[in-house]
Design a protein around this nucleic acid. Structure first.
Length: 493
RNA sequence: GUCCCCAUCGUCUAGUCAGGUCCAGGACACCGGCCUUUCACGCCGGCAACACCGGUUCGAAUCCGGUUGGGGACGCCA
C-alpha cells in the first residue's frame, strides 16, 4: 500500500458529536495501523455558520479522546485561492462552464418537479453557450455560477468502496453540479477534492451520508488529472426512531463534551464508539489502544446503520447502557494510577480535594478509590456516592437510615459504646475492628449484621458499599469513632 | 419522483463473500440463582432474532429474483 494519509475534516458549525468522533476514531485507527498520517482539516468555508468556539470545542474533544493528528489543523479558507484556481482551470479546459440561470428560476423548476413528483435535474441551456454568448452575458453584468460539465456518455462512474464493495452511478444520473457560487466562492464538492489532492490523501473514510458525493468527486479528480483515492463509507449512527443523531434533536447527549463532563473515561467512550458499526470475528469487545490498532480493518466495518440506544428520561441509564457498562468495566479494571488524575480533578472541582492525597496520604487515597470504584459508573460517583470517604459532610440515604438505623432502636446506645471500644484499640486495623464489632455483637446477643449494616449507613450514608471492615480501616479510627458517637442525630428527624 | 445503501435477539453484533458443523454464538439490558454483613464485582442459568414471498439446491440466515421496511442523497450547506 502506498503511504497512508487520511483526514478528518469537520465543519466547525457545532460541537464535536459522537458521530464525528467515531469518524475521526476510525480514521485515526486506520492511520495508526498502517503507520500513516492523520490530517486535521477544518472545513470553514461556510463563513456564516463557522465559529471559533466550535473550532476550539472540536479540538478539545479530540484531545480529550486521545485522537491525535499528525498534520494540521489546516483551515480550508486559507486555500481559497487554490480552489478558485482549480475552478478556473476546469473552466479553461472546457470541463466546466458558466451558468447564468438565476437561482430563483431554478428553484421554481425544482419545486415544480417535486410537486409533480418528477425527477429534477439541471438541464439548462448554459452548457452549450457559445463563447460570444458568454461574453455578452458577462458584459451585461449577469451573475453566474460555475458548473461542472458531467461527461455525456453511457456507462457508470464506479469505485470499489472498502466497506460496501462496488458502488456505481450512471453518468446520466449526475447533473451538472455547481462548483462555484455566484459570489465567486467555491463549494464543498470542489474544495474538498482540491484539499485532498494537495494533502495527498490516500483513503477517504467518511459517513455514508457522503455516498452520493463520491461519484461527482471522482469526476472532479479525473478532470483535474489527479489520482482517485480509496473510499470507505461507514454506516451512520441513528437514534431509536432511526433518525440521524444531531445536536438539534438530541441535545448535549450526543456531544463528546457531555461524556467528559459526566465522568467518562475517554478510552471507554472510544471503545464504545468503535463497536458502533465495527466488530471482530471473535467476540472481543474490550480493547486496549494497541489491540484495537492491531485488529482494526475497514473491511470489518458493518454495512448497516447502527442505533445509539439512548432513551430520554430513562431514570436508570443517562446514555446508551452499553456505553455505561464499558465505562464501568474500565473504571474498575484499569490500573488505579490511570484514573487517579481524573478522580483528583473531579474532587478538586467539587471542593473535596486535599493536597495530602498527593503527598502523605497518597497511598491511602489510591487504596480508597480502589476500594470503592467497583460499584461506580463514572468518575463523578467518587464525589457523590463516595463523598463520605473524603468529607464529613455527606448525605444519608433515606432508605438506608430507615432500614439499618431506625429499625434498631438499640443502636442509639450501642454505637457510642462501640465508638469507645474502637477508640481504645491500641492497634486499629480491619482485623481488630472486626474483632471488636463481632465481640460486641456477641455480648449484646444480636446478629453482627445489625451493627455492621448500621455502621455502614452511619459511616458512609449509604445502604450499600464495600466490605465493612475495609471501610472501617480506610475511614480510620478517629473518624469512625466520631461518626458513631453522633448516631443520635439520625433519630431526630 | 429519481438514484444509492441496508435488513440476524429490545440494543451492539458473530455467522453471509467460499450453502451443511447454526432448531443461530457473544455482549449490553432484563429475570432467576450462587457468593456475601449490604451492594457491586465474579460465577451459573433463563428470556429473546435470521422482515416477507418465491426460486436454485439433497440441504439456505448464507446464493438469485421480487415484495415490504429502514436509512441516505437529490442546495449557489458541509
Amino acid at each position: 500500500m502506498t503511504d497512508v494519509r487520511v483526514r478528518f475534516p469537520p465543519s466547525p458549525t457545532g460541537y464535536l458529536h459522537i458521530g464525528g468522533a467515531r469518524t475521526a476514531l476510525y480514521n485515526w485507527l486506520f492511520a495508526k495501523k498502517h503507520n500513516g498520517k492523520l490530517i486535521l482539516r477544518i472545513e470553514d468555508t461556510d463563513a456564516d455558520r463557522s465559529t471559533q468556539e466550535s473550532i476550539d470545542g472540536i479540538i478539545e474533544g479530540l484531545n480529550w479522546l486521545g485522537i491525535t493528528w499528525d498534520e494540521g489543523p489546516y483551515f480550508q479558507t486559507e486555500f481559497a485561492d487554490e480552489h478558485v484556481a482549480c475552478a478556473q482551470k476546469l473552466l479553461d479546459e472546457g470541463k466546466a462552464y458558466k451558468c447564468f440561470c438565476s437561482k430563483e428560476e431554478l428553484e421554481e423548476k425544482r419545486e415544480l418537479a417535486q410537486a409533480e413528483k418528477k425527477d429534477y435535474q439541471y438541464n439548462g441551456p448554459c452548457r452549450n453557450l457559445s463563447t460570444e454568448e458568454v461574453a455578452e452575458k458577462e458584459a451585461g453584468g449577469l451573475p453566474y455560477v460555475i458548473r461542472f460539465k458531467t461527461p455525456k456518455m453511457d456507462g457508470v462512474v464506479d469505485f470499489d468502496d472498502k466497506v460496501l464493495g462496488n458502488v456505481a452511478r450512471t453518468y446520466d444520473d449526475i447533473e451538472d453540479f455547481v462548483i462555484v457560487r455566484s459570489n465567486g466562492k467555491p463549494l464543498y464538492l470542489l474544495c474538498n477534492v482540491v484539499d485532498d489532492i494537495r494533502d495527498r490523501i490516500s483513503h477517504v473514510i467518511r459517513g455514508q451520508d457522503h455516498l452520493g458525493n463520491t461519484a461527482r468527486q471522482i469526476l472532479i479528480y479525473r478532470a483535474l488529472g489527479a489520482e482517485v483515492p480509496e473510499f470507505a463509507h461507514m454506516p451512520l449512527t441513528l437514534d431509536l426512531k432511526k433518525a440521524k443523531i444531531s445536536k438539534r434533536s438530541h441535545g448535549e447527549i450526543v456531544a463528546v463534551q457531555f461524556y467528559k463532563a459526566n465522568g467518562f473515561l475517554p478510552w471507554a467512550l472510544c471503545n464504545f464508539l468503535v463497536l458502533l458499526g465495527w466488530s471482530t470475528s471473535d467476540d472481543q469487545e474490550i480493547f486496549s489502544r494497541e489491540e484495537l490498532i492491531d485488529c482494526f480493518t475497514l473491511e470489518r466495518i458493518n454495512h448497516s446503520n447502527s442505533i445509539f440506544n439512548y432513551r430520554k428520561d430513562d431514570p436508570k441509564f443517562f446514555t446508551d447502557p452499553k456505553a455505561i457498562s464499558i465505562n464501568e468495566h474500565y473504571l474498575r479494571t484499569v490500573p488505579i494510577e490511570e484514573i487517579y488524575l481524573l478522580v483528583k480533578s473531579d474532587l478538586q472541582e467539587q471542593g473535596l480535594w486535599s493536597d495530602d492525597y498527593d503527598g502523605d496520604k497518597k497511598e491511602w487515597f489510591l487504596h480508597t478509590i480502589d476500594l470503592i470504584r467497583s460499584r461506580f459508573h463514572t468518575i463523578k460517583d467518587f464525589a457523590v456516592l463516595g463523598r463520605a470517604y473524603f468529607d464529613d459532610d455527606y448525605e444519608f440515604e433515606e432508605k438506608a437510615v430507615r432500614k439499618n438505623i431506625l429499625k434498631h432502636e438499640g443502636l442509639k446506645e450501642w454505637f457510642p459504646v462501640l465508638a469507645d471500644r474502637f477508640a481504645a484499640l491500641p492497634e486499629y486495623n480491619k482485623d481488630t475492628a472486626e474483632e471488636a464489632i463481632r465481640g460486641y455483637a456477641t455480648e449484646l446477643e444480636i446478629k453482627p449484621g445489625v451493627l455492621i449494616n448500621g455502621a455502614r449507613t452511619i459511616l458512609t450514608g449509604r445502604l450499600a458499599g464495600p466490605g465493612m471492615f475495609d471501610v472501617l480501616e480506610v475511614l480510620g479510627q478517629e473518624r469512625v469513632a466520631r461518626r458513631l458517637r453522633d448516631v443520635a442525630k439520625l433519630y431526630d428527624v
